[in-house]
Design a protein around this nucleic acid. Sequence first.
DNA 1: CGACAGGTTGACGTTTACGTCAACGTCACC
DNA 2: GGTGACGTTGACGTAAACGTCAACCTGTCG
Lengths: 144, 144
Amino acid sequence: MSNSLISQQTPAAQTPSSWTITELSREFGITTRTIRFYEDRGLLRPARRGQQRIYSRSDRTRLKLVLRGKRLGWPLDDIREMIELYETPDGEQKQLDLMLERITQSRDTLLQQRDDINLALSEFDEIETRCKKQLSTLTRRALP
Amino acid sequence: MSNSLISQQTPAAQTPSSWTITELSREFGITTRTIRFYEDRGLLRPARRGQQRIYSRSDRTRLKLVLRGKRLGWPLDDIREMIELYETPDGEQKQLDLMLERITQSRDTLLQQRDDINLALSEFDEIETRCKKQLSTLTRRALP
DNA sequence: CGACAGGTTGACGTTTACGTCAACGTCACC
DNA sequence: GGTGACGTTGACGTAAACGTCAACCTGTCG
């Protein structure tokens, strides 16, 4: 069994098993130029039929991972490293140790981000409560 | 009572109540140039003594919020909007409605980010487990 | 055959978020 | 009164992450 989380799954009934660049761009709401740019930066490695790019199921998964990384505000280079964690096959001891270290680092970043988010969320709750109180005060004044 | 979450608190025993730009830059590990740039983009509004900038307790809190926004990968303009939510005083109905809408938007973004983080974290757990299993296999082979 | 949709490469432009550097002010201290 | 430490403004440079545009290839439909 492969170590990769990105490898091909058993083909589900209706979903296609390969995509063109415009199909992917439409599905994810990004431009084809962006997708090619990601390839240029080593984030994607689609197959070719002649000149044209063909995106496999795993290429599509990679792209999803890229977009998730973007939503978290990670730079592309960091995203590439992160994705490599998903695909690295069973390696040697040194390789595995390095992977574990990188996982720890990425996890620390994620946990920090999650803490930041939880703080912001609770502060927003507080502000929202105040707003609503203020609003009800206003309407009470308006209807005496 | 003010509506702001950033307003001055009762001065705690030891903490100073104003800072210079270099003090802040050292405390948060950013350059003075960056701090001035944030001011330029409307994220900070320090007082002046002559030409020099003086940062109050609330300026420092704002800066902390900026850095938190950066850790979440938000663009500076979005961070400014977010911070304005913290400071807007009691407004009129229209203003309050707008605030509530913005809070909802920011919260949606944060919740999406938190979902992404939780997904990534659980995937990393999975990868880590595999790595460790693989490692123990290696050491078992090494010591027959 | 022509024309058109879809894809490719390369060059160049643009925005964001800073860094770098030069020239100048100012205050304290020796 | 010079000389640092600290601070300011302005001009310019830069890396990342794309967008824009032109020129070209390729299959296919009428």
